[in-house]
Nucleic acid binder design. Structure first.
Lengths: 125, 125
DNA sequence: TTCGATGGTTCGCAACATATGAACTATCGA
DNA sequence: TCGATAGTTCATATGTTGCGAACCATCGAA
């Protein structure tokens, strides 16, 4: 089993970050990790926003995030602890990640609102 | 020949924007358009950063930018004028595009610096 | 020291995406 | 009607992604 790859911060690229976070599943994982300081294991995301993610797929997503330099993964016993590298990245590309995550947040809030409007219309409101 | 597709601003998604701009060629095109208010034609980008882009490829890149909602393209006689939709997008996702373009700029400046260091070492500096 | 459980990874393949040369369409001016 | 210019579409070769099946690594117990 090949060892985990973590690029040096100097090798982290904007296109790599954008490509990694252009996938909503990966963006959601990243957002989930960003909250927790202690590190989160992979299977915490086996269901994400009411959707089942197969674990092989999830493993690929974590690899993509790792190799883009967005997260760091360390084995602790039987499980993996994943943490974001947001401090390093924010030093190199100030404001990029916050702007990105904020845009996703805005989009999600809009979707929620739209769903509510639709629901209330359907109920005759 | 099918008509050009421009999504309504409400249908523009963060993942679509990130995916479109995760390609350095498209990011460079977008940056080029962002400067010019009057609209730029496609073939202005047939060579980009010392690289030849085949025009069929270029056409696909413009389509990707257009369908992601990042640019607007209008036929003017024999040519196309492309403009960014940055004002609309910035209203919907405030700060996203500036942060993104700034990150690319930072990265390019770093690359330039690194190339200079390498050059000066090679000359014995 | 073997077994089972748990948590992740890798393989193989089908489905989808991308880059590009060749052929095409649209518009203009002569 | 012709040729030139600007861009699009098609065909295809190559690359990427998603996922089930099989696998590997670690732990705790017997």
């Amino acid at each position: 089993m090949r060892p985990l790859v973590h690029p040096s911060i100097d090798d982290v690229s904007v296109e790599g970050i954008l490509h990694a976070l252009a996938d909503p599943v990966r963006a959601a994982i990243y957002a989930g990790l960003a909250g927790c300081e202690r590190g989160t294991n992979c299977s915490a995301f086996l269901q994400l926003e009411n959707r089942e993610i197969p674990k092989s797929t999830l493993s690929q997503h974590f690899r993509a995030l790792r190799e883009a330099g967005l997260i760091r993964s360390e084995r602790h016993g039987v499980e993996m602890r994943n943490t974001t590298r947001c401090a390093e990245i924010d030093e190199r590309f100030p404001g990029l990640l916050p702007a990105l995550m904020n845009a996703y947040k805005v989009q999600m809030e809009e979707k929620t609102k739209a769903a509510k409007r639709k629901g209330s219309r359907a109920r005759g409101g």
